[in-house]
């Protein structure tokens, strides 16, 4: 879909729910804009975490795409992209 002000609009999924974004936007920024803030839990204390640095440094935005672990801030949305949370288990206890 082409929208004069928004460029190409695409739909993608996070945890089964549909969201829309501009093609080329990062998954992290697109979800943030849609009000989705928490992306995962910290492995030790299971605290909610979300994107923080947006430049591939902090690793807080780790998600699953097509069975692979990727950084949401370094991954572009595309039509039909399916994103989910990583199944993080308590690693240390």
């Amino acid at each position: 879909m082409q929208d004069a002000n928004r460029g190409v609009v695409v739909d993608f999924h996070f945890e089964g729910r549909r969201y829309s974004a501009r093609a080329g936007q990062s998954v992290a920024a697109a979800l943030f804009a849609e009000g989705v803030r928490g992306l995962r839990e910290s492995p030790r204390e299971q605290q909610p975490r979300g994107m923080f640095c947006l430049m591939g440094s902090c690793q807080e935005c780790l998600v699953m795409v097509d069975g692979r672990r990727v950084l949401a801030c370094q991954t572009e949305v595309s039509e039909g992209l399916s994103v989910s949370r990583v199944a993080e288990v308590g690693l240390h206890d």
């Binding site: 990062s26 920024a29 804009a33 947006l54």
Partner: peptide
Amino acid sequence: PGVIGLAAATILLKSQKV
């Protein structure tokens, strides 16, 4: 979640237009 870096905010504004 929702607390982000200032640098992250510049990227949102400059590049992501969010």
